[in-house]
């Protein structure tokens, strides 16, 4: 028995050690952001200062477009998430419950698309957006991210598992297929819809490569793209740089505190969708 308790203690210590290691970069960033600019690079480094203040944050708000970036990220992430939920759930229901000529082939092509890494398509996609005249618009950032075949696949698998009797009952009552989808199927699918929605939102919010290419107008930059420009513009003002980093990471971390359970479930669910 004592050996079991000893092992539990060892396990706890190892866990705590790794956790401290993992939290240190974040805590150090917050710590730096609260120091006066002159104290950030004083060697030997110390975690404490007699002059902690939020001055760096005030200067970030005054000098950068942080709020604008936040707004842009919100527009893009909400737009993509809404469009993905709408188009992917409709398509998934179509693949799951209806029949039309060529359905198997079309679904096969959609599933094959899961293997296509979007980063490999940036050159032709840029070419296409240029031809459409959409470069430097919200649409350029939003539209390509709506083509998410993995989400169709996940939703179809879920719909396949819903017993058909429920829909039959509604059909006998004379409900149209669209009405059945809206009033019977979607309410039953809340867990998977929230998983798909949360995952899409997090992913779009943090996406860097494509928005970075699609937009060069500072008024349209999202948080990841805007933050990529500050390293050079702030030079060696580390308190200000870390204040920007903290502000840039904060929205999702706050959201995480509120939706922790849902987020963990949705990441695990969408990540493991194949098994």
């Amino acid at each position: 028995m004592t050996s079991v308790r000893a092992w539990n203690l060892v396990g706890l210590l190892v866990t705590a050690f790794i956790a401290v290691l993992w939290l240190t970069p974040l805590l150090w960033a917050v710590d730096t952001s609260l120091k006066p600019e002159g104290e950030t690079t004083l060697v030997p480094l110390t975690w404490f200062s007699d002059n902690f203040s939020v001055e760096a944050f005030q200067r970030v708000f005054a000098q950068s477009d942080m709020l604008r970036w936040f707004l842009n990220s919100t527009v893009v992430a909400v737009g993509v998430t809404a469009l993905v939920l709408a188009t992917a759930s409709l398509a998934a229901y179509g693949f799951s419950r209806t029949d039309f000529r060529g359905k198997r082939l079309v679904f096969g092509v959609v599933v094959a698309g899961i293997m296509v890494p979007p980063q490999v398509l940036v050159v032709p996609l840029y070419d296409e957006m240029l031809a459409l005249g959409l470069i430097d618009t919200y649409w350029a950032m939003i539209l390509p991210q709506v083509a998410a075949p993995a989400m169709v696949f996940i939703l179809k698998k879920f719909f396949d598992g819903i017993p058909r009797e429920l829909e039959e009952a509604a059909r006998v009552d004379g409900a149209s297929i669209l009405r059945i989808f809206w009033q019977v199927v979607l309410p039953l699918s809340r867990p998977v819809l929230s998983a798909v929605g949360i995952f899409t939102f997090i992913f779009t919010w943090n996406n860097f490569f494509w928005p970075f290419l699609a937009v060069s107008d500072p008024d349209l930059m999202t948080i990841p793209v805007g933050l990529a420009t500050i390293q050079s513009s702030y030079g060696l003002r580390y308190a200000q740089i870390m204040a920007s980093a903290v502000l840039g990471g904060l929205p999702l971390l706050v959201a995480y505190v509120f939706f922790q359970r849902n987020i963990i479930r949705s990441v695990a669910h969408t990540g493991l969708s194949g098994t």
Partner: peptide, 24 residues
Amino acid sequence: PAGLLFTLPFLVFYLAFLVWPTVS
């Protein structure tokens, strides 16, 4: 067919922003 209507909105995005760039 109703099924095609359900899948159409997604397929438009899929063809325009995934299949076409792959081919092009």
